[in-house]
Amino acid sequence: MYAQMVDTGQSRLAGLAELSPEERAFQSRIDADVKIEPRDDMPEAYRRTLIRQIQQHAHSEVVGMLPEGNWITRAPSLQRKATLMAKVQDEAGHGLYLYCAAETLGVSRDRMIEDLHAGKVRYSSIFNYPTLTWADIGTIGWLVDGAAIMNQIPLCRCSFGPYARAMIRVCKEESFHQRQGFDILMTLCRGTAAQKAMAQDALDRWWWPSLMMFGPPDAESVHSAQSARWKIKLLSNDELRQRFVDQTVPQADYLGLTMPDPELRWNDARGHYDFGEIDWQEFHEVLKGHGPCNHDRMATRIKAWEDGAWVREAALAHAAKRAARQREAA
C-alpha cells in the first residue's frame, strides 16, 4: 500500500505475558478503542512505527504527484487539464495533512524529507513506474487510487487520533480521484480503436504493479501482526488485495478491457476471484531502487527541494526583519 512493509522494530509478536505493565495498560486502551493522542504515553516502538508509516504514506502522496504531473501539460482537453491539476494538487494536500500528523509525534517535516532524499525511508513502489500515455492517467485514478481508498477507509478508524483524522479528510477528497480516472477510461474505451488499444495497454502495464501495492503475502509479513495489534493496520495485505481484485474485475468487464492474467477466474466455492502469482522479485527490486523510475523520481524531488531552499530561507529572513521592525516601532 502507500506504506508498504513498515518496520515495527519487532522480529516477532510478543506474547501478552511478555509486555511490561505500561505496555499492557497501553494495549488495553487500544483494545477498548480509545484513540491515542500525541501527548499520551505510548510505547516507543508504537511511536517509531507510526512515524515510519505516516511518513511513508506522506512521501507516497508527494512522489505520487510526479507520474501524474507528467501529463498536466499534455492533458488532451481543457476540462481534463483542470481536473488533473486539481487532483495532483489534492495529493500535495494529502501529503501535507500526513506530514502534519507525523509532526505531532515530534519529528519535523524537513527531517522527514531529508530522510526520504537520503533513501532512508521508502514511498510506495507504484510511483516508480512510468506514465507513458494519457490512458495511464485514467488507469492510475482507477487502479492506484482505488487501491489507496481501499486501504485508507479502514485507517480512518486507526488508533492514533491525528492519523485517523488526516485519513478522514483524505478519504473525503479522494473519491473524486477514482471517478475521474474511470471517466477517462470510459471515454477512451468508447472512443476510436486506437484509444481503446491505449487503454488496454495501460491496464496491461499497471495491473500487476497495482496488486503489489498491497505488500507481500501475509505469511511473509513479519510486522503486520504487531501493527494489527496496535490497530494501525486494520486489514491484512492479502485481505485487501482480494477485495481489490473482486471489486475491480467487474469494472474492467464493464470497460470491455481484458485483465492481463490468464489465471484470473471466479471461484464459486470461495466466493472470490482466483488470480495468478505475483512477481515478488520485481516488487522487491523496485523497492530496492531498481524500478524504471526510482532514480528520476528522487532526482526530481531533490532538485525541487534544493531549488526551493533560497525561497524558503528568504521568506523566513523577511519574517524576521518585519518582526524586528515591529518591535522597534513599539
Binding site: 510526479l66 504531473g69 501529503g95 525541487a304 531549488d307 526551493g308 524558503r312
Partner: peptide, 9 residues
C-alpha cells in the same frame, strides 16, 4: 505542479 519550493506553495 509537484516541483514547488514547499508543499503549501
Amino acid at each position: 505542479v509537484g516541483k514547488g519550493p514547499v508543499l503549501e506553495e
